[in-house]
Computed example of a mutant assay.
Amino acid sequence: MRFERIFEDLEGRFEHHEQEELRAVSEDLARAERAQLTLADRLRGAGRRELTLHVGSGLRLAGAVEEVGAEWVSLRETRTAQRAVVPLAAIGIVEGLSSRARPAEESLRSPLRLGSVLREIARDRSVVRLETTAGTVLGRIAGVGADALDVLSLPTGESSSVPGSARLTVTMSSLLAVLPR
Rank of each mutant, 00 (worst) to 15 (best):
R49T: 14
W72Y: 15
R13M: 04
H54G: 08
R48G: 10
R44T: 11
R113P: 03
H54T: 04
S26K: 14
H17N: 06
R42Q: 05
T78M: 11
S26Y: 06
R13N: 05
R49P: 06
A177F: 12
L53V: 11
D9V: 05
T169E: 01
L118S: 03
A40K: 03
V151E: 01
A177I: 03
R129M: 08
L112M: 14
S26L: 15
F3G: 08
A142W: 05
R167Q: 14
L88E: 03
L53Y: 04
S173M: 00
L75P: 00
G58C: 02
E77D: 06
A62Y: 00
T38G: 10
S116D: 14
V137I: 13
S74A: 12
V117M: 04
L154C: 01
I6H: 01
R44A: 11
R79D: 12
E27R: 15
P163I: 03
D124N: 07
L138M: 02
V85A: 13
E106D: 13
I121K: 06
A142F: 10
A35S: 13
L118D: 00
S116H: 13
Q19W: 00
R102T: 02
R113L: 14
G115E: 01
E95R: 11
S74N: 01
R42K: 14
V55M: 08
L97I: 09
L130Y: 02
L97W: 10
A64H: 10
I93H: 14
Q82L: 05
A64I: 02
L22F: 00
S116A: 15
T52K: 10
D150E: 15
A81R: 15
I121P: 08
G12D: 14
L118T: 02
L59Y: 12
S110R: 08
V178Y: 09
P155C: 07
G139H: 03
T133G: 03
L138V: 15
L59S: 09
A30F: 01
A40T: 10
R2V: 14
E18H: 13
E105P: 00
G69D: 09
L138D: 01
V85N: 09
R44G: 14
R60W: 06
D9M: 11
G115H: 08
D9A: 12
V137R: 02
L61T: 03
I91Q: 04
D28H: 13
R31C: 01
I6M: 03
P111N: 12
E95V: 06
L152R: 15
I6K: 13
V94G: 05
E106S: 03
T78K: 12
D147Q: 10
L75D: 07
L97E: 01
R34N: 09
E66M: 11
T52C: 10
L176D: 03
L97Q: 03
A104G: 14
L118Y: 06
M172D: 02
T132V: 08
S99V: 14
A101H: 13
D28Q: 15
L149S: 00
S110P: 02
T169Y: 00
L61K: 05
